[in-house]
């Protein structure tokens, strides 16, 4: 009788195990499919059409035309090159300087360290638009504080946002300003997690401070460093998007346009859905390939404590 009673219970449990997970997953999956996966497919489809986004105007199939045109566009190559500059320019600010700071400041007293932590984290929580507004004010060629300081030292004021040679570095610096505290904290946390016994042992063996950094700290920090490098490469140009939009609009003369901004420009300034979608597909494929390679590299090259 006990067996007879347990059989339906068992069956119910199996049925439950079959359907329940999907019920719990449904709201999340539905959202992600509707707002991310379906749009990806749709972007792919639209990249073969010519259309100006007006519901009344027809969508004309143009095959690979959009792609050909984009690859023939000097603006596209300029944006691609700038995307590279953004990433390379951000690496020192988002990884190298924070790494040096984290190692250099590891023996500060915990009390003061907490105060510094709290302060250098502030840019991270400030909204990108607010950051852009404030820097626009600080960098104003006529009345900005930064130029006041430069003139006080006797140098010529700099047109931070309207000089084509300078503008991209200004945007990179502002993006870096938002990130530098955050990266420093990530690396400080990793640095503080290093087993003190290892350092003590090395010190006993007569290793110099520099040798300890080179042979123990850096290898043990490598997974955090690789993580930050990957984030910077994958997302660096994306972080700068807000500042480009608010501060330069991609100009002067396209000097600050990157690939993300170009997408925006195609889609919503020129209202060319086909170009925008084709650029989106190119970006997505490139981004995916890069992410794949980076994840493989991290798997292979990161060291672990134990």
């Amino acid at each position: 009788m006990a067996i007879a009673a347990s059989a339906p219970v068992q069956r119910r449990r199996i049925n439950q195990a079959r359907f329940s997970p999907w019920l719990y997953l449904a709201p999340a999956i539905l959202t992600l499919v509707v707002w991310i996966y379906w749009p990806l497919v749709d972007a792919f489809r639209l990249s073969f059409f010519q259309w100006n986004m007006l519901p009344t105007s027809p969508q004309t199939f143009v095959g690979w035309d959009n792609y050909q045109r984009i690859f023939a566009l000097p603006k596209f190559w300029q944006a691609l090159r700038n995307t590279g500059i953004y990433v390379l320019g951000l690496l020192p600010l988002a990884v190298l300087i924070p790494l040096a700071l984290a190692i250099y400041t590891h023996d500060l007293s915990p009390r003061l360290r907490n105060i510094y932590r709290a302060i250098i984290f502030v840019p991270m929580i400030i909204a990108p638009v607010v950051a852009a507004a404030v820097w626009r004010w600080l960098l104003d060629p006529n009345y900005g504080m930064v130029n006041a300081l430069i003139e006080w030292f006797g140098a010529e004021p700099v047109k931070f946002l309207s000089d084509p040679k300078v503008a991209i570095w200004t945007i990179i610096a502002i993006t870096g300003w938002k990130l530098i505290g955050f990266s420093t904290l990530i690396l400080s946390a990793a640095n503080a997690n290093i087993n003190p016994a290892l350092l003590e042992a090395a010190r006993m063996d007569g290793a110099s401070k520099w040798e300890i950094i080179r042979d123990i700290r850096l290898p043990l920090l490598s997974s955090s460093v690789l993580f930050l490098v990957m984030m910077t490469i994958l997302l660096g140009a994306q972080w700068s998007f807000g500042y480009i939009n608010v501060l330069t609009g991609g100009g002067p003369l396209g000097a600050t346009t990157n690939i993300y901004y170009l997408l925006w420009d195609f889609g919503f300034s020129t209202m060319s859905v086909g170009w925008g979608s084709a650029a989106a597909v190119i970006l997505f494929l490139g981004f995916g390939a890069l992410a794949f390679v980076l994840f493989r590299l991290i798997d292979r090259y990161s060291f672990h404590d134990n």
Binding site: L32, P39, L40, A43, S277, F287
Partner: peptide, 19 residues
């Protein structure tokens, strides 16, 4: 699910806007 974290907003923004 994890992969959606890597899709840049700018890639899906036009279809999302149309929707």
């Amino acid at each position: 699910v994890a992969l959606t974290w890597l899709v840049p907003f700018q890639v899906v923004m036009i279809p999302n806007y149309l929707l």
